[in-house]
Design a binder for these strands. Structure first.
Lengths: 236, 236
DNA sequence: TGTATTTTTCTTGTCGACAAATAAAATACA
DNA sequence: TGTATTTTATTTGTCGACAAGAAAAATACA
């Protein structure tokens, strides 16, 4: 082995403020896709070596992730990917259903014409993923679709909470879809279309009702997966 | 002026993890009490000198505060206390009213016996502040009272959003009470008592209704202050 | 005098190093 | 052999220093 890099390290330089964002995005994606499963230890030094930067920007990214509840930090000890409380998902479901409702309702009330193409774009991406039976893309595009609706509702407080819930939902769904290759039914695509129509028509009450029903469908679907999984666990 | 500290700097040492929390709490309090008004620049070096520590823990505290929306950071440039969008407080009011409702409802549903003494304690603190016509303590204890109710509701997603809204509310109220020495009416104390009763009785619907009415009262009160202030602004 | 360009200053972002706190390993002791 | 104590090792929290980026100041030019 020689001292000279095989690639002669041509461009090891990054732009000045990009380090933190790079680490943040990388870790966030790996956490949400369960590449880093809940409970995984996160080693600052190791990350620093891998990404060829000092610990400082990595530390800042970790602080931000901790603020969003994606990692847990034990003082003076280890830091690890946040666990999911599978024994009591009710608070999560409660918050998720309410935010589905509220953001859909507000989108019907406050959206601007330029919002609709964006929402429709994610809707089509989602439909394509359903067609292709690509569960992972379905999970991600579904979250993006509803996040876009929330943006159109123009309430940053609701939007930020909803994004956090959708992120957590990605982790939960990913956990079950990777083992069972389940898929969202076509029904969800149709419901998305109906939601878009209600928003475009500025029909607030219908949007509210559809948002709530859609959310409860999803919760029910997840709970079904859970029940089946628990039965299997017991059977084994 | 001599080089020797007047106090001989006897214990300049802090415990290891306490630096960040100290800075965070200090800045948070100063921001919420408008000691640092919206738009104030925050100088890392200056803070480091004042608190006799390096910039690293200060930076970490700033990252956390930015994550909570209390400060804004411009890349490679200044960082300053987050502004308040006075021209459009509707999203704030919408979110505030909904969280008042939801947290009060959930408290009626999920509280445990040990939660009630805590809630009643803040209730008494608030009543005392009203009696003493101490506007600042009223603002703070009112927020603490409702945060305690949210905790009893045991939904961390709602609680964290609600805390953020209550923080923002402290800033808004503080701005107006410091100029007009207005005060919350006795009515709010009575409403608080009724809310506690509904929670203790586990009367979910009543708690929901009272929480909503109480929130709308507060929003109306704030909007009244705004209207009066705007009239004065125009008159001047 | 007004505008464009260069220089300076000031603040932030990143780095490498060191010390404290904890966990793990090793040792002593019963 | 089992428990308590010391020692080692690993990881975090903090520090001081330096360089990049942008604003402000100074200069050049019309």
């Amino acid at each position: 082995m020689t001292d000279i890099d095989t690639d002669n390290s041509p461009i090891p330089e990054r732009k000045r403020g990009s380090g933190v964002k790079m680490v943040y995005d990388l870790l966030r994606d790996e956490i949400l896709d369960l590449v880093l499963p809940p409970g995984s230890p996160i080693d600052e030094v190791q990350l620093a070596e891998r990404l060829k930067m000092s610990r400082t920007p990595i530390r800042e990214a970790l602080v931000r992730l901790a603020g969003e509840g994606l990692i847990d930090t034990l003082p003076n000890r280890s830091t690890m990917v946040a666990n999911i409380d599978f024994l009591n998902l009710n608070p999560f479901f409660d918050a998720l259903v309410l935010m589905y409702r509220v953001t859909t309702r507000l989108a019907a009330q406050n959206h601007r014409p330029e919002d609709l193409p964006i929402i429709r774009g994610f809707h089509e991406d989602y439909a394509a993923a359903v067609q292709a039976r690509d569960a992972l893309t379905m999970i991600a595009t579904n979250a993006a679709f509803h996040a876009a609706i929330a943006e159109a509702g123009r309430n940053p407080y609701f939007t930020s909470l909803f994004r956090r819930l959708l992120d957590e939902g990605r982790r939960i769904l990913r956990l079950y879809y990777q083992s069972y290759e389940e898929q969202f039914p076509q029904r969800f695509v149709d419901e998305h279309a109906a939601i878009i129509a209600a928003i475009a028509a500025r029909d607030i009450e219908t949007a509210d009702r559809l948002g709530k029903a859609h959310a409860e469908q999803i919760v029910e679907q997840v709970q079904k997966l859970f029940a089946r999984n628990n039965k299997l666990d017991i059977a084994l």
